[in-house]
């Protein structure tokens, strides 16, 4: 095959418009942009139309897109629009996006190896990220057989080998096999491992601080929840090879035995 198709999620910047794109709107926008001229360069921009009642005709969107792009804002789509608004946006070359989840205002820092939020997006305001609605569980060197249940849970029944990366980008990741050292599990939700866990597990990678990691036998190189992490050195001998759960308690990553 000359190409490969992968699902990958990115964080986008959402502009919530509260009215028409009039002179006042552009004035305020320019003032904002002048404070941080390069802040939004290369960031995918999505316009939330939930409260943009004044924006209707297709001409409005074509003009808006032209103006935003002139300001180096890479607008890619709209969401929460009416049927007319969506049609207008389509004429202006924009796509309609569904769903999405807001990042926490002071999003957890430094998540290692997480493709879902590029380096650049990391220091931008985390207002309203969007979820690509065509996303699938994406795994580099996919461990077969990955099943995606209705709730977005990804189930892996074969060992996850060194170098493999499994990404549950909508919900939980459940592995009913061992995870080798050098393998990586990444989930927006919880991570469950019913086998030896020798690799890396990252739960709540979109900033969900309530996500947890459950292990049958913890021998992990690294565990992380919402960007807070511990390496095997930090985990300590008490939890080693034990049945444990890891969770966040007031900005501290706790590892406790399962009773």
């Amino acid at each position: 095959m000359p190409f490969q198709i992968r699902g990958r999620s990115f964080t986008a910047v959402v502009l919530q418009m509260t009215g028409a794109a009039d002179a006042e709107f552009y004035q305020t926008l320019d003032a904002k942009l002048s404070q941080a001229p390069h802040f939004f360069t290369n960031a995918p921009f999505v316009i939330d139309l939930d409260r943009a009642v004044g924006l209707n005709r297709s001409g409005d969107f074509t003009g808006l897109v032209r103006e935003l792009r002139a300001r180096k804002l890479s607008v890619i789509g709209v969401q929460n629009g009416t049927i007319e608004q969506n049609a207008g946006a389509l004429t202006a070359g924009l796509i309609t996006l569904q769903g999405g989840r807001d990042l926490p205002p002071d999003g957890a820092k430094a998540r290692s190896g997480d493709e879902s939020s590029g380096e650049e997006a990391e220091d931008r305001p985390r207002e309203r990220p969007i979820d690509r609605n065509d996303r699938v569980a994406a795994a580099t060197e996919a461990a077969e057989p990955a099943e995606i249940a209705a709730g977005g849970t990804v189930l892996i029944t074969e060992p996850v080998r060194s170098g493999q990366r499994i990404f549950a980008d909508r919900g939980d990741l459940v592995v009913v096999a061992s995870v080798g050292s050098g393998a990586e599990l990444v989930a927006h939700g919880n991570v469950h491992i019913y086998g030896s866990m020798r690799g890396r597990a990252l739960a709540g990678v979109n900033g969900d601080t309530s996500a947890r990691i459950f292990c049958q036998s913890l021998e992990a190189e690294l565990i992380a929840i919402a960007g807070l992490y511990k390496t095997s050195d930090d985990i300590g001998p008490a939890a080693w090879k034990q049945r444990v759960q890891a969770f966040l308690d007031q900005d501290a990553l706790c590892v406790e035995p399962l009773k």
Binding site: M1, E141, A142, A143, E144, E158, P159, V160, R161, S162, G163, Q164, G180, S181, G182, A183
Partner: peptide
């Protein structure tokens, strides 16, 4: 052992059998 684990991962994803969805 770790390199073998890596190779096993490649066998289950980058071989012809894996790409064709045949028996691994």
């Amino acid at each position: 052992v770790r390199d073998s684990d890596r190779v096993l991962g490649l066998l289950s994803s980058k071989s012809r059998r894996a790409e064709k969805g045949e028996e691994p």
